[in-house]
Structures are given as structure tokens and as C-alpha cells.
């Protein structure tokens, strides 16, 4: 499969995530859109790992080039899981304090 397809797909997913972050005001949806963006990047990383692997295979049949990228994705997932647990805890606390998850109420930065 041409790498461009994967690139375009990842960019499209990422942009949809950005759009969601910009347009939605529900903090949970915003959070989910961020996860979507993370996944778009993950997909791109895997695609590139396979691309490099294919290139390296031509020289060395036993090469392991590309495995690092997939491990990188693995670590991203680890970090994302930790991030989600903390982020959701924050959202819960926010809901407890202002009884809403609307980020437009989070305008304390102005003051």
C-alpha cells in the first residue's frame, strides 16, 4: 500500500480530532478527540515502521528495523492510559466543583 494513503488517512483523522477539540465544548468529548488525534499519530508511526522495514528487508532478510517504532506506539498507549486516568479524574473534580463539563465555564484564565 503506498505510504501516502496512510499519511492522508492519519492527517484526516488528526484534523477531525482538531476540529472536534475546537467545536465541541463538552470536556469529555474534547478529551476523546485528543485520544483520536493520538491514535492517528499511532497509525502513522506503524505505517512508517512497516515502510522502513520493507526498505531494510531488501538488504538484510533478518533485519528488525521498524520494531522500535511499534514499541514507541506501545509506550504511547501506556502513557495515554495514564493520561486518561488523570484527565478523567480532573474532569470529575471539575464537574463536582462547577456542576458542568462545559469548557466555556473554565474561563478563570482571564482573571
Amino acid at each position: 500500500m503506498p505510504i501516502n494513503y496512510y499519511i492522508f488517512l492519519a492527517v484526516a483523522l488528526f484534523s477531525i480530532g482538531v476540529m472536534g477539540v475546537l467545536t465541541r465544548r463538552n470536556a469529555i468529548i474534547v478529551f476523546m478527540c485528543i485520544e483520536l488525534m493520538l491514535n492517528a499519530v499511532n497509525l502513522l508511526l506503524v505505517a512508517f515502521s512497516k515502510m522502513h522495514h520493507a526498505t531494510a528487508l531488501a538488504g538484510d532478510a533478518a533485519t528488525m528495523v521498524g520494531a522500535e517504532a511499534q514499541l514507541f506506539v506501545f509506550f504511547i498507549m501506556v502513557v495515554a492510559a495514564a493520561e486518561v486516568s488523570v484527565g478523567l479524574a480532573i474532569i470529575v473534580m471539575m464537574y463536582r466543583n462547577i456542576h458542568s463539563v462545559d469548557i466555556n465555564f473554565l474561563n478563570r484564565l482571564k482573571h
Partner: peptide, 14 residues
């Protein structure tokens, strides 16, 4: 620009 709303800040960033 300084609305204090996170959304607008992100918009500007994008």
C-alpha cells in the same frame, strides 16, 4: 483574544 476560554485559545493555536 483573551477571552479566558480555553476553546478560543486552542483555536488561535491551531
Amino acid at each position: 483574544l483573551q477571552s479566558g476560554q480555553v476553546g478560543s485559545y486552542i483555536l488561535i493555536m491551531v
